[in-house]
Nucleic acid binder design. Sequence first.
DNA 1: GGATGGTTACTCGGATAGGAGGTGTCCGAGTTCTAAGGG
DNA 2: CCCTTAGAACTCGGACACCTCCTATCCGAGTAACCATCC
Lengths: 167, 167
Amino acid sequence: MKLSEGVEAAIHCAASLAGLEEGATIPGSALAAQFGLSPSYLLKHLQALAGAGILESVPGPAGGYRLARAAERISLLDIVVAVEGPQPAFRCGEIRRNGPVKLPDAAYVKPCGIKVAMLRAEKAWRMALAAEKLSTIVADFRKDADPRSVAAACAFVAQHGRPQKTS
Amino acid sequence: MKLSEGVEAAIHCAASLAGLEEGATIPGSALAAQFGLSPSYLLKHLQALAGAGILESVPGPAGGYRLARAAERISLLDIVVAVEGPQPAFRCGEIRRNGPVKLPDAAYVKPCGIKVAMLRAEKAWRMALAAEKLSTIVADFRKDADPRSVAAACAFVAQHGRPQKTS
DNA sequence: GGATGGTTACTCGGATAGGAGGTGTCCGAGTTCTAAGGG
DNA sequence: CCCTTAGAACTCGGACACCTCCTATCCGAGTAACCATCC
């Protein structure tokens, strides 16, 4: 099993956007340059986040992306689900029914125990992922990371951040 | 993210093998027929389980596969790792270093906070998966599942199970 | 000087090729069972 | 009747195509800023 590579990019972008002031935006091209990614490709994942209601997009010049709600209310689970899709990782194909001896459907009303066990473990993962808030990620980064790295991140936000239109 | 389809087959096969008496084996072709899978393809996954030390293979006629240790000591994590590989689902590409401003490597001695958070959540999944023992799966199946289904599973084991060679 | 219209440039958005990894299949090496032949 | 031996059949094991999904890219639609023009 492996997660899509875009998950890492999506989380990094969301963390960067969390450093913006209220209403300001950063264009996707700047985010792509910040992480050395293809702008067109990163757009795909940012669109997924926007479609899931995690980001908001502002078109036109001076436009870009911003968080749709406070970083405290955004978990890593939200981002992973937005990028990877909501379906569970373990897909039960009901192969227990494919045997040579065909039993009536009534014999399979109880869910497959293997499926139950796998989804139970997966739920633990989702719970842990939901407990990881974006605000905590950002706070820990500012507290523990190397000062040069923090300064670079702040400089990036200050350089590419664009205030909200005053209309 | 999604798990390989073979994980489901591997767990079902392991559960079936758990119903064997000590030393007896079931050939891979019989397991494939039981779950309606391609024999050649199922062999690939059974080989992975054997390579990981979960199953043992016996060649020749009257050969097949059997559990390499007691079902109490086999967890779903063991099977998942054997089929999917040991590498974590979240792969950190260290894209934080790819920005236009190049910092010395000394600025990145601390691990990426996003990576830490993702692996922490993933560890919760692995812990939950390790707690799901194959013996529990089988016991719950015999206790809760439909009697017809249990009878069919027992009949399958009785029909295709082959006792250990007496040499 | 202020308002207005057109132009321009920049943004996001969706539709389109390429490639890695899982999926499915095949044939070969090894081992045991079987059966025939000889003692 | 028992032992030996050659054959055959069944098993696992690894190497080879196919196909789906992620990766990567392009071009088009829309919008706000900018600037020249007119009042």
